[in-house]
């Protein structure tokens, strides 16, 4: 009979992440913050166009029950060159969906390094920190950093007007919304 060793090495805290591409750059996001991954094609009819000049990185809304989910173009968000997006991440606990070019792979990170204080602009909100994978430095995005409360308010106002106009249109045509 064998006894298990009493002294175990402390377990390394790990986190499952998804590496994704946006405009040829690689980013990581915690798998736990992604609720669904959908193809852009599969959302064709479900997405409404929105044009809020103050938030140009959002061009579409998805209606999920009574909620508006705003589709953020990741390339525009990070100030990268526009690129053909193929996938959408629907994020958990936020009203944001993220338009990305593609998924690179799923993996595990064991260490998240805080962003140096030398980075002192929007990137402090964009990223939770940096991780090193296979001798590459990958920024780990903050799922709550894509839209500010102010931007959400502006988008809600624009979406409200859009939905009202659509309902009025449908009534005029004798359709029920």
């Amino acid at each position: 009979m064998r006894f298990e060793s009493v002294h175990k090495a402390p377990a390394v805290r790990t986190e499952q992440i998804i590496l994704f591409r946006s405009s040829n750059q690689i980013f990581a996001i915690s798998s736990a913050s992604v609720q669904e991954v959908r193809s852009v094609d599969s959302l064709g009819g479900a997405a409404m166009e929105i044009n809020e000049p103050a938030v140009p990185k959002v061009r579409h809304i998805l209606r999920r029950g009574e909620r508006n989910v705003y589709v953020v173009n990741s390339a525009a968000h990070f100030g990268l060159r526009p690129s053909p997006a193929a996938l959408i991440f629907l994020l958990r606990k936020t009203r944001v969906a993220l338009l990305i070019d593609g998924i690179e792979k799923m993996t595990t990170m064991t260490r998240l390094q805080a962003l140096s204080e030398a980075f002192c602009h929007e990137e402090r909100v964009w990223y939770r920190g940096l991780t090193v994978l296979d001798q590459n430095v990958i920024p780990v995005v903050n799922p709550l950093g894509f839209l500010t409360d102010g931007e959400l308010l502006q988008l809600d106002a624009a979406a409200g007007a859009l939905i009202e106009a659509e309902a009025a249109n449908a009534q005029e045509m004798g359709l029920t919304p």
Binding site: G79, L80, A118, F119, H121, V137
Partner: peptide, 25 residues
């Protein structure tokens, strides 16, 4: 040097040194 999207113009990118990510300024 590793580069990723950010908005601090004084930073060129980061290097890896002894497991630490160090910004290049």
């Amino acid at each position: 040097m590793f580069r990723f999207a950010h908005r601090t113009p004084e930073i060129d990118g980061v290097i890896l040194r002894r497991g630490r990510v160090v910004p290049v300024c």
